[in-house]
Design a protein around this nucleic acid. Structure first.
Lengths: 336, 336
DNA sequence: CTGTTAGCGCTTTCAG
DNA sequence: CTGAAAGCGCTAACAG
C-alpha cells in the first residue's frame, strides 16, 4: 500500500502542500525551478492525484456517464466507439450503465447520477415519451444531458439521431423504383419512436403511388418471427420487403431460402442495418446504415461543449440529425 | 442546482449530521423512529450520497475498472455483458478504458488507477509477456486485479480464459475425423499468446497423424487476406481449413465461392467464433465458440471476491479455464 | 514566488 | 440513542 499523495511530495521536497499542488497544475505563480523538481519527484513516485479528493473539492470529475439499453448490439458498440474517441481526446473517463430497456432501472441510474458522480450524461432512453421527471431533475441539478438515438422530443436537451424518416422514405422508394408493387414492412417494438418514425417514412413513400401498406408485426422470438414471415410471404406474396431492423432481414432471408423465393429476382429486400451482418448473406442486399460511430462522436462532443460552457444556453435545445448511408451491394464478394 | 446533502437533511430534521449519516447506513445505534424519519425525507428529496466524499473518506468507490482492447468486437461485448451482470447484482459501477491494443495507453490507464479511483481492475492485456511493471505496481498499491482472455502467466493474479489449447485440438481432430488429409491453419497476430496457444493445439492434433502443418499468416487488411487465402487454396489445395478467428473463416468462405469450391464437399471449414456471424453463411459451418459471457461473469466474480476479502491470499494466483462450446451446424436454417 | 488555512461531503471515533 | 469534531486529499482564497 504505497499510495503517494501531495503531502508526501511536499515533505520530501520541503515545500508546502499548496506549492506542490500549484506546481502540479502548472500555475504561473510557481518558479520554473520548483516546478521541475516537483514534476520530477511526482513522476518518480508515480504520483496520481486522488480523483475523489479533487472531485469533492472542485465539483469536477472528468467523467461522463453513458446510459444505454445494452451492449451486445452492433449499433451501440459502434456508438460507444465514437463516444470513446472524443472522451479519449479530451481526457474524460466513461462510466457505463446498461438499462436492458428497463425504465425503472434507468430512473434509478439517473437518480444516482444526480450527485456529482459525473460531469455529464449521455443517454439513449429505454422508453420514450414516458414520464421524464428523472431527466428534468437531472437538468435542475445542473448536470448536462445529451440524448442520442432513442430520444424524446419533449425534452429541452441536445438530441442526436440519424435521419430515420428520410432514410425510410429513400429505402421504400428504392423498392418502388425497382418495380415492386407490393411492399411489406417488417417491424418489432412498434411502440418505440424510431420504429414509428421509420414506419411513417415507409407510409409516406407509399402514399403517392397508391400502394396499400402491408405492416407485419414481428416478435422478439426468432422462431415465432420466422413463422410470421413465412405465413405472410405465402399468403400475401409481396414482391418487396422493407425490414426495419437487420435481424428481421436475416430471418426473412432464411424464410425465402426455405420456400424457394429467389432474391432479388422474386422478391427484393432492403433493410436497416448497423454492421454488415446481413451483407454476409448470399444475395445482394441493399441496406440503410446508420452513422453509429458519428452519432456517438457527435453526442459526446455536444455534451463536452456544454460542460465546457462553450455553447450558450441558446443551443442547449437542439436536434442534430445525421445522414444515414444508403449501401447498395451488387455482390457480397465486393466486401473484399 | 439543488443537490441535497446530509447537512440539509440534518437541518430539516433537527438532527446532527452524524445521526443522519448513521441512520442512512442503518446503524444499530439509531432508533427505529429516527431512521424512519430520515429515510422518508431522504427519499422525498431524492438524497444521493456524494460518491466523491464517501470514496475519499472510506477508500471505497464501489467502482471497478474494465480495461479492454476494444469494444466493437463481438467477443468483448459479450464479456462485458457478463461483467455487467455481476456488477449490477452487487451494486458496482463500471469504468471503461479502451486500449486499442496500445501498450503505452494501457500503462497510462493503469497508472491512473493507482490512486483510489476504483476498487479493482479487470484487464485483458494489450500485449502479453511484455513489461508488466505497471501491473506489479498496481498490486503493490493494493488494488485487486483479475486478468481475462489475454493474460500473462508470469503474473501472480487470478486469470480467466477459455480452453484455447484443448478446443483447438478438438477442432483439428474434427477435421481429421471428417477425413481431411491436408489441413490449413489460418491465423493473424501470431505473436499474441492466444494465437500461439491455438496454433499449438492444431500442431499437437496433427502430429500423431503425421500430417504436415500448413500455416497461413493472414493480414489485417481484408483484401490482402482474401488474396493470400485464394493463392493458398489454389496452390496447396487443402481439404480442410481451421480458422483461428471468425473473420478469416468468412473471408475464406468468400474465396471458396469465387473459385467454386463447395463447402463442405470439396473443403471443410471449422472456425473459432464468438457471435454466430459465420453461421449466417450458407454452408454448414462448425464453430468453436468461446464462453464469452461466462468469462466476463467469472472474472468479475473473482474480482469482487478479492475485493470483499472472501478469498484468502492463497487463491489470488489461480487460472480459471472455461470450456468452449463445439457447435456443429447441419444447416443454417436451424438457427430459427 | 511561497505558505497558511478553510472547506468540499461524508464517516467515525470519542464523549456524553 | 445522539452530538461534536477530526480528517480523507485536494484546491483556492488570502496573506505575506
Amino acid at each position: 500500500m504505497s499510495k503517494v499523495n501531495i503531502k508526501q511530495l511536499a515533505k520530501e521536497l520541503n515545500l508546502s502542500i499548496s506549492t506542490v499542488s500549484r506546481a502540479l497544475r502548472d500555475s504561473y505563480e510557481i518558479s520554473a525551478d520548483t516546478k521541475k523538481k516537483v514534476f520530477a519527484l511526482a513522476k518518480q513516485l508515480n504520483y496520481q492525484p486522488n480523483p475523489n479528493a479533487s472531485g469533492l473539492r472542485g465539483q469536477k470529475t472528468k467523467t461522463i456517464a453513458v446510459v444505454i439499453p445494452e451492449m451486445v448490439n452492433d449499433f451501440f458498440s459502434l456508438v460507444i466507439g465514437g463516444i470513446e474517441k472524443v472522451a479519449q481526446e479530451q481526457g474524460y473517463y466513461l462510466l457505463f450503465y446498461f438499462t436492458h430497456g428497463d425504465y425503472d432501472l434507468e430512473v434509478s441510474f439517473i437518480n444516482t447520477l444526480a450527485n456529482g458522480r459525473v460531469d455529464g450524461v449521455l443517454l439513449s432512453m429505454s422508453r420514450e415519451n414516458h414520464d421524464n421527471s428523472h431527466l428534468l431533475e437531472l437538468n435542475k441539478n445542473g448536470i448536462p444531458l445529451v440524448l442520442f438515438d432513442r430520444v424524446s422530443e419533449n425534452l429541452d436537451n441536445v438530441k442526436v439521431t440519424s435521419d430515420n424518416y428520410d432514410s425510410a422514405i429513400t429505402a421504400t422508394r428504392h423498392l418502388i423504383d425497382a418495380g415492386c408493387k407490393k411492399i411489406a414492412y417488417l417491424q418489432v417494438h412498434k411502440n418505440i419512436s424510431i420504429g414509428k418514425i421509420r414506419m411513417n417514412g415507409y407510409l409516406e413513400a407509399l402514399r403517392p403511388k397508391g400502394q396499400t401498406p402491408l405492416m407485419v408485426e414481428c416478435s422478439n422470438e426468432n422462431e415465432e418471427t420466422f413463422e410470421i414471415i413465412e405465413k405472410m410471404l405465402l399468403n400475401e406474396k409481396p414482391d418487396g420487403i422493407f425490414a426495419s431492423v437487420e435481424k428481421l432481414a436475416v430471418i426473412c432471408y432464411r424464410v425465402c431460402e426455405k420456400i424457394n423465393l429467389r432474391i432479388p429476382r422474386d422478391i427484393k429486400i432492403i433493410s436497416f442495418s448497423n454492421l454488415q451482418t446481413a451483407s454476409l448473406l448470399n444475395p445482394s442486399l441493399t441496406t440503410i446504415t446508420q452513422p453509429a460511430f458519428d452519432i456517438g462522436e457527435t453526442a459526446a462532443k455536444e455534451l463536452l461543449d456544454i460542460i465546457h460552457k462553450k455553447s450558450k444556453s441558446a443551443s442547449r435545445d437542439k436536434h442534430v440529425i445525421l445522414k444515414s448511408l444508403f449501401i447498395k451491394r451488387k455482390s457480397t464478394s465486393a466486401l473484399y
